[in-house]
């Protein structure tokens, strides 16, 4: 059986679900950020698979992936800066204990 578009899409779906589970179920804020990275990567795989199989000559999906990478890098930098500054003030990175804005 040759590898087709569906294989890559299902792989991307599996990775996205794993990241979704991690983002919802983890306590550590850095672990949540890592799960979000997995989700972004899964989206990139789907983009490149569509670009490779549906419009092989245009490569528009690969352009989108370049922008996804930029946004992911910016998101990681700002997210980790927020986590480190919270850790300085409250000595914890547990997302269930960071409830300053809860009513």
């Amino acid at each position: 059986m040759s590898i087709g578009l569906e294989h890559y899409l299902i792989l991307s779906g599996i990775l996205f679900s794993i990241g979704l589970y991690g983002a919802l179920a983890k306590r550590n804020a850095i672990a949540i950020l890592m799960s979000i990275e997995i989700m972004l990567t899964a989206a990139s795989i789907a983009m490149i698979a569509f670009s490779r199989y549906v419009v092989p000559l245009l490569l528009t999906g690969q352009i989108f992936v370049i922008f996804i990478m930029v946004v992911a890098a910016a998101e990681t930098a700002v997210g980790l800066a927020i986590i480190i500054s919270i850790y300085r003030k409250r000595e914890t990175v547990d997302a269930t204990e960071i409830d300053l804005m809860k009513m």
């Binding site: 679900s17 979704l20 589970y21 919802l24 179920a25 983890k26 306590r27 550590n28 997302a95 269930t96």
Partner: peptide, 14 residues
């Protein structure tokens, strides 16, 4: 890095 209380619902959602 333990899981929080939402572990089972999160698994079901995923």
């Amino acid at each position: 890095s333990p899981s929080n209380k939402l572990r089972i619902p999160a698994f079901v959602v995923a």
